[in-house]
Amino acid sequence: MREKLSESIFDKLTMNFLRNQVLKNAYGNDDTVIAGLDPRILILWYLFFGIVPWFSGNVVFLMGCFILVSITTLLARIAGLVLLLFGIGVFSQTGYLFLATLLFGGDASSIVPLLVLTLKIATVSLASITVFSGLDPDRLSNGLMWYGCPERFSFSISYAYRMLPVLMEEFEGVLLSYRLRGNPPDCDTLKGKIRYLIYQVKIIIHAFYPLMLNTAKRSRTTVEALEIKGYRYAASKKEAKKVRLSTLKVSFDDFLFLAISFFWVSLIIFLSGYF
C-alpha cells in the first residue's frame, strides 16, 4: 500500500506535471483582477507589504497584513504548486528553527517570537507571490523598468517567459532519451531506492551536457536576431524606454486597490493599539 502511494506521488511529479504547473502559473492567470492592475502600483504595494512586516513585532498588525495578502493571493489565482511550495517553505523555515531552539534548551517563551517570525515570512512571501506570479511577465518587467531597473534585467524576465516552455520541452526530450535507453536500478528495496535516487540525480546532471550544447546553438541565433531587431540600439537610447513605458496607465481600479489596502492597514494599525 505504502509503495503504491509513493509510486503514485512519483507518477504525479513527472516533468510534464511540473511543466504544466509552471506554465499555468506563468501564463494561466493573465485575466485576473490583480493582473489587470498597473505594475507600478503593484510594485509600490509590494514594497510596503514586503518590507514593513519585517519591522513590526505586533501580532495583530501582522495577522491583519497576512489576511490581506492572503485575499490578494486568492484573487491572483496562483497555481497550486506554488502555494504548496509556499506552505513547505514557511513551515521548514520556522519549523527547523523551532526544533533547534528546543534542542538547545529553549522554552515556551521562544514560541511567540517564532509565531511572529512565521507571520512575517508568510506575509512577505504571499505579497511577493501576488505581485510576481500574479502579474503578466511583460507588465512586470515594464513596471520594474519604470522604477529604474536595468534594461538587461527586465529583458531577461520577458525572455525567460518566452524560452521557458521551449527549454522545458528540450530538457524533457533529453530526459526521455535517458529513460528509454537507460537502465535504472530496481527500486524495490530501500537500498535500491537510494541507488535509484542517485541514478536519477546523475542522469539530470548528465542531461545538462546535451542541453548546454543545444542551448548554445539557440542563443547564438537569438542574439543575432536581437542585434537585427535593434535591441542593443535601443539599450543605448533613452527615448526607447519612454516609448516602451508609454503603454502603462494608472486607472480607477488601481486607485481603488490602493485605497482599500490603505483603509485596511489603517484599520489594523488602529486595532493593534488595543490588543
Partner: peptide, 8 residues
C-alpha cells in the same frame, strides 16, 4: 520571480 518566491 516566476514562482513568486521573491524574497526582497
Amino acid at each position: 520571480i516566476m514562482l513568486g518566491q521573491f524574497g526582497g
